[in-house]
Design a binder for these strands. Sequence first.
DNA 1: ATAACACGCTTAAACGTTTAAGCAAATAGA
DNA 2: TCTATTTGCTTAAACGTTTAAGCGTGTTAT
Lengths: 342, 342
Amino acid sequence: MKKRTSLKDIAEALGVSVTLVSYVMNNKTKEGRVAPETAQKIRQTAKELNYQPNQLARSLKSKRSQTIGLIVADISNPFFANLARTIEDEAHSLNYTVIFGSSDENHIKLKKVLDFLTTRQVDGFIIAPTDECKETLIELKKSQIPFVLIDRYFEDLPTNYVIIDNFQASLDATNHLLKKGHEKIGIIHYKSELIHFKQRVNGYLKALEMSGISPDPKYMQEVTYANFEADIKAALRNLIYEEEVEAIFFCTNTLALEGLKQMFDWGIKAPGQMDVVAFDQNVVYDFFNYFIPHIKQPIKEMGQEAVRILIGQINEKVPKINTVCLRTTLETQTIDQLKLKT
Amino acid sequence: MKKRTSLKDIAEALGVSVTLVSYVMNNKTKEGRVAPETAQKIRQTAKELNYQPNQLARSLKSKRSQTIGLIVADISNPFFANLARTIEDEAHSLNYTVIFGSSDENHIKLKKVLDFLTTRQVDGFIIAPTDECKETLIELKKSQIPFVLIDRYFEDLPTNYVIIDNFQASLDATNHLLKKGHEKIGIIHYKSELIHFKQRVNGYLKALEMSGISPDPKYMQEVTYANFEADIKAALRNLIYEEEVEAIFFCTNTLALEGLKQMFDWGIKAPGQMDVVAFDQNVVYDFFNYFIPHIKQPIKEMGQEAVRILIGQINEKVPKINTVCLRTTLETQTIDQLKLKT
DNA sequence: ATAACACGCTTAAACGTTTAAGCAAATAGA
DNA sequence: TCTATTTGCTTAAACGTTTAAGCGTGTTAT
């Protein structure tokens, strides 16, 4: 690789000091302390030699890498990919670069990625935490590297976070199914200690309670990450053929997708034959004969807020904890309404 | 942010020189030139102070940032998100970090992102080039920063690249439709100078020729990036209602998705009423009553090859150009066969 | 005439590493 | 006993920046 041109090269070419070149390139020619002709010459030579500042050296001096680390469960998951995209845009516009890593929902891997990115001197992290990663986050807090949790958080760990109102979202979803007259409503959720998942279950329970329906544990099916597909199949079989529920609420994007696929394979039309509500959006929903009611997350706002909060923290001397909880919307538009618009 | 501990901190704590600490931490205690007890003490103190090397400073010295820049059209596009994921895994395993940017298929933006990442002293780039970005790539070549093109390339620009055999893929796809007895086969492709798109058209033409069918320009529909949705709608209307084609080949992921959605909205069952072949995979295909024949790209191999070639180039003194062309497979499994397996 | 200041630039140190070179003390070889 | 080598460490310079401090000239004010 050819040597990139440095301030020194420009300085030598013109017989001036490196300092002077630095001042000019940074427009720190304070109070006309540099002769306009000199400045002009420097700028021109810089252009000719195609000078591009070495951000590494700059960072070393300033102790700011202008880089943020993004750690999500899996960058190839559409939800996180979309999030990554908005974070990229926001960060770049604020002159920050984004380096990323995937945790695969595994707290050991998360720690590994975190350490890996830390040696890169990131100025801060945006993290979608996994189950059981609280210890790692406590350590991270001690190191005083700023970070913002996204999508998920821990109730008893004061940190910055950007989340959605999972309880309300779930309440809305369940109410929607109740309003359609269903009483036997199933829910499929992950087995996880993550509070945001629990709140989704809580929202469901609250909605039932408010309608005077006492929840039936048999309608509530847990699925493990490890045995994802088989668990969903079993859960659905239970709900549909054993318990004969009238509607199903899928607590996440991935659960909804896999669940709908399974139902599709069994020839059960959703929502034609089985009312459902899904969490999060998906291109797949466009390919159903009926509109799939789902909870729409404000992904763009989430990404932007996370970046802004993080950069705020990076620049504060005494950072205060910032938490943001965004509202979701329940999309229940019927296919006919949809058609009218296009 | 708390000061991260440096070699100096360890050195001062023990009253030794920074150099010695550096030697120990890098296991460069060549030929027993450091007393084992000293080494032991240094290692322990390093652990106690939670020392993590500053990769920035290291990079400055070594002129290697151990970072690669990934530029794709849009990280939120599933194809690129998947690619990014395999690139991340491969890079991390080789001790490289990945920073990314999206070009939005716009060569101006690509140049901007490229410059932005260049100041970060990346050791090399993996780039999915856009239309009209050849000039930028020529400049990049001059700068001698190694790079590997992925998914797309330019015929008259000798560079490293990892692509698929688009011609063959397209040939396979069209042959599949021919074998089903169709003669009036439509194709929907992007209006673009990118050679890989052209080769997809060429494969289609070749297949027709080999079957002794003379291609009809009216069966070949161009779509612009700018007016994507409307163009596809018009193209489909033309092919289906005017030309009354018997089958359609969609040249990309996005075209297939949007096209199928449109057909779905019109109530045209694919492939029940209209045979199709799509390019690239998609979760959506699982939600059709029939199997959607499609060309499967070896995304994992593409990502891995790209990283390996790039890092090879970074380490070569006199790099040779490396090109890799991978074979695709045409997936034509019927839904019944699929069911048998699950 | 002389002090004061503005101007246009340079010197030097620092950020955290790496690495070649060097040096004093201990040990070995003769 | 004297030289040569090994051992265990240090000095110094460098990577490309930034930034406070400084230093001659020349101009202005008194």
